[in-house]
């Protein structure tokens, strides 16, 4: 079994492998990037099932897209940023369709969802409060903060993922962090 907790997968080697043999290397690409896609979607959506659905659909779309790309185009892809263009759109769409459903107000949905997430139970109250504060941010700021500080994406990767200039992405991170510092009760952290 390949390691699923690779922390610094070499994305340029992945791109080269995908270009050379898409079917043969796709599983390795999923394993190398899935923790990030799942964690990011989970923090943006607040619900484990939604995050797994987004993850599944992200890779299905990625595979379809890559099948139509030339080898040259794949080998020069910024793999993480490119994968996040798909995932971020899916997260955004999911939040939109949720807010259109009057019977499932966003706030209640998230509270109930985070409560039943078994892999969350190990997280402290700190995590609980911070996760809630994140979900209160407007989506662009939430996505930017999550990508930069939870997933450790570079600003360059984020600019690709969010299809925004680097300056805009940086500003969203700063604004998001500022709002978290105001809303997230740090004094209760210890």
């Amino acid at each position: 079994m390949m390691g699923i907790t690779m922390t610094t997968p070499d994305m340029s080697i992945l791109a080269r492998d995908l270009a050379g043999d898409l079917d043969g290397s796709f599983a390795a690409y999923v394993r190398a990037t899935a923790d990030g896609i799942y964690s990011g979607s989970l923090r943006m959506l607040g619900d484990r099932t939604d995050a797994e659905d987004v993850m599944q659909e992200t890779y299905a779309r990625a595979y379809n897209a890559l099948s139509g790309y030339s080898q040259e185009r794949i080998s020069t892809l910024q793999v993480r940023g490119w994968t996040w263009t798909i995932a971020a759109n899916l997260c955004r769409n999911r939040l939109r369709s949720r807010s259109r459903k009057p019977t499932a107000p966003l706030g209640d949905f998230d509270v109930a969802a985070s409560g039943r997430s078994t892999d969350e139970e190990a997280l402290s109250e700190v995590g609980e409060a911070l996760r809630a504060a994140l979900l209160d941010l407007p989506f662009p700021q939430r996505a930017a903060v999550v990508m930069r500080h939870v997933l450790d994406l570079t600003y360059e990767e984020m600019a690709i993922a969010l299809d925004r200039p680097v300056g805009t992405v940086k500003a969203d991170v700063h604004r998001g962090l500022a709002r978290l510092r105001r809303d997230y009760p740090e004094e209760t952290a210890r």
Partner: peptide
């Protein structure tokens, strides 16, 4: 540092479903 702790792992079966 608290934000960094929000990184988690995808379950093996979710990875399989994605593949």
């Amino acid at each position: 540092t608290d934000l960094e702790k929000l990184m988690t792992t995808a379950s093996e079966t979710a990875i399989h479903a994605a593949i």
